[in-house]
Design a binder for these strands. Structure first.
Lengths: 195, 195
DNA sequence: GAAATATACGGAGGCACCCTCCGTTTGTCA
DNA sequence: TGACAAACGGAGGGTGCCTCCGTATATTTC
């Protein structure tokens, strides 16, 4: 029973044993630091927490952006897997449940995503990949609700996703207000324009 | 006809002639630089553009944040004045027209607001002031639409403002998509929960 | 198990940026 | 016009991102 993992991960892990250890140490330290300290954590600080030199950190993540991306990908992968237990619900119910999950996720990743958008254009490969991952999970739910006549037909999944994401990431609103706003916005999906 | 302006401005301008000139030069250079170069412009660069020393820039704006705030306030003041010609419209029409104006404004200020939120908590005095300015302009329009039964009553102006702002500032969506999403979200205001 | 080799480590130092300090200059007022 | 307050400007301190390269360690080979 070797310790080699199957190469299913999207992120290529380094080869040598000490290297892999350090890679994980950095990633973990970064996750913690970002959770605690907000987005302003320096890479020096992360290296210190991880107990490695700054050079080692840069060996694994060629720049700050790369480290953030690695964190981000890790999390999205996890999220997309969580959309398979909703098939037997009422179409509208299934859709809004799924978005609830998404919303909870987004709430914790605010700072990370915000900083990433400083480095990347929204059509960067990374975001494309994440979106397509979310699409394959959520789009069928929307389609189903539209075919059941429970959601207006002049929107597509991208619209809804952007709408929910934008509202959830708004740092100026409290969680309870965000919830209220989302309810309104999602109700907009049910509005039918023939007055 | 003296050149002294009435002290109606929220921002206190400096006293001496050269100082006032330089203050304006910096502010103008900053506005241009941010419009062109995005948010990553350095203060040294702005001072250079304005043709003043870095020390002078810092005399007027004690730090980067202060400069951004000054820019921001300037713009919001301008916006709030623009909401007085809507009284004679249908309540729903008036409300959505006003938000159209707001939306256009927000579109151009994305980068600025985004960077400011890195420095300030959403309840900073600056934002409070801007919000209250927007409130006094927009809240009556919402009230009127609610009393006319054209808008659901379980939302307040803050909700709608945050909703519109969040969607408008979303950098991942194209202008046309943003427009579509806003239409959906604002239609949510008309949805009435008795099914 | 030891030598050879590839791989990884770590921190000094370069560069850019934010900001402070203080000697010099300039506007203002009597 | 002279005196003083106000403002100017840039050298330099501190920190953060990142590079470079001498040192150390894992892995492979014999």
């Amino acid at each position: 029973m070797s310790t080699t993992e199957a190469p299913t991960e999207l992120l290529a892990r380094p080869k040598r044993a000490d290297a892999r250890r350090n890679y994980e140490k950095v990633l973990t330290a970064a996750r913690e630091a970002f959770a605690e300290g907000g987005e302003a954590t320096s890479l020096e600080e992360i290296a210190r927490r991880a107990g490695v030199g700054i050079g080692t950190l840069y060996r694994h993540f060629p720049n700050r952006q790369a480290l953030l991306e690695a964190l981000y990908v890790n999390e999205v992968e996890e999220l997309s897997r969580s959309a398979d237990e909703l098939d037997d619900l009422d179409p509208w119910e299934a859709l809004s449940r799924w978005f609830e999950g998404l919303i909870g996720y987004l709430a914790t990743k605010r700072a990370l995503a915000a900083e990433l958008t400083n480095y990347l254009t929204p059509d960067a490969a990374l975001f494309q990949a994440c979106r397509s991952s979310l699409f394959s999970a959520g789009e069928p739910l929307l389609k189903r609700a539209q075919e059941a006549g429970m959601v207006r037909r002049d929107v597509d999944f991208s619209d809804v996703l952007q709408m929910v994401a934008a509202i959830s990431k708004n740092p100026a609103a409290s969680p309870s207000q965000i919830e209220r706003i989302l309810r309104v916005a999602l109700d907009g999906l049910r509005y039918s324009s023939e007055s």
